[in-house]
Nucleic acid binder design. Sequence first.
DNA 1: TTACAGTAGAGAATTATTTCTCGATTCTAC
DNA 2: GTAGAATCGAGAAATAATTCTCTACTGTAA
Lengths: 216, 216
Amino acid sequence: MDEPKPLRPTSEATLRRLPIYHHLLQKRLSTGIKTISCSQIAEELDYDATQIRKDLAVTGIKGRPKVGYDLAALILSIETFLGWSRVRKAFLAGSGHLGSALLGYNRFSHYGLDIVAAFDRDPDRVGTKVHGREVLPINKLAGLAKRMRVEVGIITVPAPVAQEVADFMVSGGIRAIWNFAPTKINVPAGVIVQNEDLYSSLGVLLQKLSAAHRLV
Amino acid sequence: MDEPKPLRPTSEATLRRLPIYHHLLQKRLSTGIKTISCSQIAEELDYDATQIRKDLAVTGIKGRPKVGYDLAALILSIETFLGWSRVRKAFLAGSGHLGSALLGYNRFSHYGLDIVAAFDRDPDRVGTKVHGREVLPINKLAGLAKRMRVEVGIITVPAPVAQEVADFMVSGGIRAIWNFAPTKINVPAGVIVQNEDLYSSLGVLLQKLSAAHRLV
DNA sequence: TTACAGTAGAGAATTATTTCTCGATTCTAC
DNA sequence: GTAGAATCGAGAAATAATTCTCTACTGTAA
Ligand SMILES: NC(=O)c1ccc[n+]([C@@H]2O[C@H](COP(=O)([O-])OP(=O)(O)OC[C@H]3O[C@@H](n4cnc5c(N)ncnc54)[C@H](O)[C@@H]3O)[C@@H](O)[C@H]2O)c1
Ligand SMILES: NC(=O)c1ccc[n+]([C@@H]2O[C@H](COP(=O)([O-])OP(=O)(O)OC[C@H]3O[C@@H](n4cnc5c(N)ncnc54)[C@H](O)[C@@H]3O)[C@@H](O)[C@H]2O)c1
């Protein structure tokens, strides 16, 4: 009776909902309340209370009947589970429109990510500063990543060069890639890729709008 | 025997995958090939071929055994299904970091979306131009949306004011909202909201990275 | 012509996720 | 104290999504 559970990894759906709860909980924290129940969260977000209870359970938090969860403890539990309590260094490749927006967003450091430098191929960009971070030549990425023990790579370059940039990241020892380019990138086993495809989101929105049209 | 099928709406998972196929198909189109099969797509994207077949079926495309699908017809079928073939006007609220990045991205017009104007509350921003689009005062949003028959609203304002901006959009007759603020917005029935929560994406990435650490 | 291999499409089986049900617990009010 | 209401937590049931299986079709090559 050593490993009775197969210990499945947490479902992606649950992982995506946890930050949504986190936003709400933080908002509530500032109002001064001390506890919150699943039914209250459910009411606010229009989710099913049982689903929220199961989601929160994966973080290891324990609630009390009739009361709910301790708000501060719950926030901490989510942050710990998601890996937001330990800040990891990140390199961003492609300091264009989207890359600059991410660099300008100083809130990621509260969510486990510290973008320490940006990289680009364009000589006009290299050497400039974007929101306080220096832009370095892309060919320095791998070496620096290794030296600085950078764990996360962010790809905001055009799709045709995304694979090449990902290869630099992998060779620099980066083990998790946040990919904003609308293309699949191939990485060796053990490297985590999280695609953020805005077209998928846009596709869902516009399809629903079109479908609504067709019905009415 | 009039409505034998309940006609369920297409699942969100399928809707999110269709744009991913679209990216690949477009890339293939430029190589000159004329047809493509599910097994080829599956090989490339590391998906299950049957899943791809079922996904593509919802767009109404018909394939031929041993051959696959006509590439150009398939692309068109996806575009039509997702509502990308008819371009809809959009207003963007919040011309900050992220809003500017979206305004600078001229490719959305090929994907059914034409951002025609931006809105902001900051007097320093109002009156300027961001990537060719004028920034107008936020209090003009509702009236102009109604007059110009704008269908889509994009929210890139800070979370605490997202609801207020959404209300302006709804009162201007906007029926689909692409929300980048990390907060729930409440809208009347019939209005479509698509949340694009970068923290969800980041949460998935970092949790997987943490979990990988724990195992090794 | 004929065998063969690759593939779409439909439906069944499997797996994953969400929702329901119920017992146990804990707070509040009487 | 005791009754009642709210809620957690665990397991069962229902629902949804994915993967498997089989048949029929189509092009290619012997
Ligand atoms: N901006 C958006 O709103 C938006 C929306 C959806 C998707 N995207 C995707 O995000 C990515 C970036 O978009 P963007 O609008 O910021 O583009 P952009 O052209 O503004 O920026 C791209 C940057 O990458 C740099 N670059 C090009 N090749 C490089 C290389 N080999 N190595 C390092 N840097 C290189 C360029 O010099 C440029 O600075 C694209 O893949 C795009 O499809 C952007
Ligand atoms: N920039 C990013 O990388 C990033 C990442 C994740 C999430 N987000 C989210 O996107 C949103 C925008 O982020 P940002 O970095 O662009 O912020 P930002 O501060 O650069 O831009 C916000 C803009 O909204 C305007 N604004 C404020 N109140 C307004 C109102 N009532 N009406 C109209 N305009 C108003 C401001 O003047 C400013 O121009 C935020 O909700 C943020 O959480 C941004």
